[in-house]
Amino acid sequence: MTKDKLTPSEHAALWDNFRNGSKEAFSQLYELFAADLYRYGYNLIRNKQLVEDCLHELFIHLHAHRSKLGPTDNIRFYMYRSLRRRLTDSITKLNKFDSDDYVFDNAEFMIEPRESQMIEEQTLERQKQMVIAELNKLPKRQKEILYLVYMKGFTYQEAAEAMDITMKSVYNTVNVALTTLKGYLKDTFKKQGLLLVLLFLQYFFKN
């Protein structure tokens, strides 16, 4: 899950500090975004060395060109997009296969493990396992869209821009995925209305 909880104006301020040459701001950029970028990079390409090299290049590039960079109030999106381009470019340069065949090829949906002994919850988990098997069959581009929208909190526009695709394909993918979910989970959810109320309360106490 995302860890940075900066508001857009905090993003803009940090970015401006960095552009004006603050070493501290540069270090803060790394601390805030490197781990998350690493995770994204590794889901795009299963190669730690390549991900690290691209991250290294990305930060060096940002630093070297800081005075020429434009303003942004969404650093995370900006960096995700740059990292994705760097990774796809370096794969293409390596000329092994077309980068399209490689990118996001190994990422998989999984169930967040929950500690629960309740039979009803276990049934729900089993049901979810089936949905996840179904979702994992989606084409990798669609999976990447869902990853960006539902795990990284990208807006549709940001996801489209990051992946160089149209907004329409983002919308369509979200629709397909939600239909899949609905088909599998609807009945279970109806039957387990009570359980859901429980889960719901738990969720609110946690927050």
């Binding site: 995770r39 990422a107 949906f109 999984m110 539902y150 859901l196």
Partner: peptide, 15 residues
């Protein structure tokens, strides 16, 4: 509450 569960289902394995 259902929407929350749906959204949480889109969870990817992360390294």
């Amino acid at each position: 509450n259902i929407a929350t569960e749906y959204i949480k289902t889109f969870h990817f394995q992360e390294f």
